[in-house]
Computed example of a mutant assay.
Amino acid sequence: MALKRRRNAAPNPQCPLAACMALIGGAWTPNAIWYLSGGPRRFSELKTDMAPVSAKMLTQRLREMEENGIVSRRVVPTSPPSVEYELTPLGAELLPAIRAIADVGMRLKARSAANAA
């Protein structure tokens, strides 16, 4: 006997999660949002914060985030010129989700450390 196919009970069949994941799903994007949550950062500061990421990848992610309205890029008139990145209001709206993921990550690390001991 074949199983009866059940209807999806999700509140919105258009899946708003897909739209959000399109913004934050790229490699290193959540990390950049996390480090920008503390305020504006220069490229070199972000590169140091996210040590394993290559400069090419970070540049690519920051450009994508700027195109998607998550971060703003501001040229600081210093000598030599400097560039700062900052979360936009849309980027700041993503912070509760990023913080929730980070909280789960901390619990997973603690559990892993406890199991190793």
Rank of each mutant, 00 (worst) to 15 (best):
P96I: 03
E67I: 03
N8C: 04
P40W: 02
K56Y: 03
R42S: 10
R99W: 00
S54R: 05
L3E: 12
M1H: 13
A55H: 12
I70F: 03
R41F: 02
G38S: 07
A100D: 05
A22R: 13
I24P: 01
K109E: 08
A100V: 02
F43W: 04
G105W: 05
K4Y: 13
W34C: 04
R7Q: 15
G105L: 06
T48V: 00
M106W: 02
G105V: 08
A102P: 00
Q14L: 12
G39R: 09
V76Q: 06
M50L: 14
N31A: 14
T78W: 00
R6K: 14
S44T: 13
R41H: 03
A116S: 06
C15M: 10
P96N: 10
W28F: 07
E45A: 07
L95R: 10
A51V: 04
E67S: 06
M50I: 15
A22L: 12
A114N: 07
L87S: 03
N12L: 04
E93S: 02
A27M: 11
K109P: 05
P40N: 02
P89K: 04
P52E: 03
L94C: 11
A113G: 04
E86W: 12
N8E: 11
W28Q: 09
P96M: 04
R6P: 15
N68M: 13
R7T: 14
L3T: 15
M21P: 03
A102E: 01
I33D: 00
T88P: 06
P52Q: 01
P89Q: 03
G69E: 10
T29N: 11
L3V: 13
R6W: 15
A2C: 13
L17H: 15
A114Q: 12
S72D: 14
E45L: 06
E45R: 08
L58P: 08
P11S: 11
Q60W: 11
S82R: 07
G91I: 01
